[in-house]
Design a protein around this nucleic acid. Sequence first.
DNA 1: TAGATTGTTAATCGATTAACAATC
DNA 2: TAGATTGTTAATCGATTAACAATC
Lengths: 217, 217
Amino acid sequence: MSNSEINRKDNPVPEPTLRRLPGYLFFLQKIKEEGILNISAPVIGKSLNCDSTQVVKDLAFTGIKGRPKVGYNIYELIHALEEFLGFNRTNEAFLMGAGNLGSALMSFQEHQSLGLKIIAAFDVDTNKIGRLIGGINVLDYSKLPQLSGRLNVKIGILTTPNHAAQNVADDLVSCGIKAIWNFTSANLVLPGSIIVQNTSMSSYAAVLLRRLTDSGY
Amino acid sequence: MSNSEINRKDNPVPEPTLRRLPGYLFFLQKIKEEGILNISAPVIGKSLNCDSTQVVKDLAFTGIKGRPKVGYNIYELIHALEEFLGFNRTNEAFLMGAGNLGSALMSFQEHQSLGLKIIAAFDVDTNKIGRLIGGINVLDYSKLPQLSGRLNVKIGILTTPNHAAQNVADDLVSCGIKAIWNFTSANLVLPGSIIVQNTSMSSYAAVLLRRLTDSGY
DNA sequence: TAGATTGTTAATCGATTAACAATC
DNA sequence: TAGATTGTTAATCGATTAACAATC
């Protein structure tokens, strides 16, 4: 039984850990340029402002082995992180709703480095259908079942208006989508097997604004 | 000593709570249309798929009082949430970096309902300077100190390329900005008094992609 | 009054941090 | 060998969930 197979069922990676891992990866990619070969958890922790024990534990989830007194080989570590996070694969996705936010995500090059590839966008607005945004075609929403049947895409990115979110999510699920990246404020009710990643701007705005109030302005 | 004054110092609102509060607010705004006058924590919990005790505790942070057997007055509750989160105020912000993501945020109307108002954007790209995006002017980056001196803006939205993020953040701080909403992947090193809200897409992509892998595709 | 719900206190759970043994 | 760092086990901390008393 491989490490990943053990994790799959009994030992899911904690979400806080997953959220930190890309930070390590970006830091390592940055300092790789400086020709450093090995790096230790205390150095990473000091640079990223977090506990070194936590760095060790987080990195252990990727299956990488470090050497006492030396640390981790930076190339192995970068590879392990990319592999573990799926950033070096190509994960195809549909984008639903080519409005402001949707268009931005299509134009946003950085997804590529996260192994995410939006292969098509869908909208009901005839003004948007047929347009090419960030190199991605905006298709008629009614074409979704047909295309999903052929392409076996697993990820849906939801950038519709809030009121349409639940219906579109339901449609995605019936088309075989396994994971939904929900940028709307809608609370989606979906089968438990569907992975939902909520990324509503309002949550972050809430934290930021309240902290500002807490601090006494 | 008012409730908010007590919270300010000794009892900061937990971040998980703050992240959930906008969800309650959107739900309430939606069902307000149906003419419902009172709503109980168990009903909110059932609809939003979370524990009713948690709803009660979360709402208590806003200072609102409920009535046993009846629940909360929906109008009072909406008001309390908006007030507490700062969504009914106008919080002015500068946006730094009018690229794809920055442009999207400028066009994204929903910020208004979060009490956020981007009053100007800044960029170094002469092709962008002078343009109007989503009704917001893109100004020359060098104009930042001058404008911030006059306007007393507290919030900076950081949508620059990663490599420029730290420098721009430093400039924002020296211009009197108190809170930075960081959309880049850069790990910002700033004075402790500055509120930083990291919203890097890569963290969410990481969680989503890994959960997909965990589930066995 | 009876019953549902708030509001609070206690128990559980999970993540972070600390301690320490293993090892290069 | 000595010392720094990994890797693991234990202690702490905070958030969630459960229990229960107060109350409308």
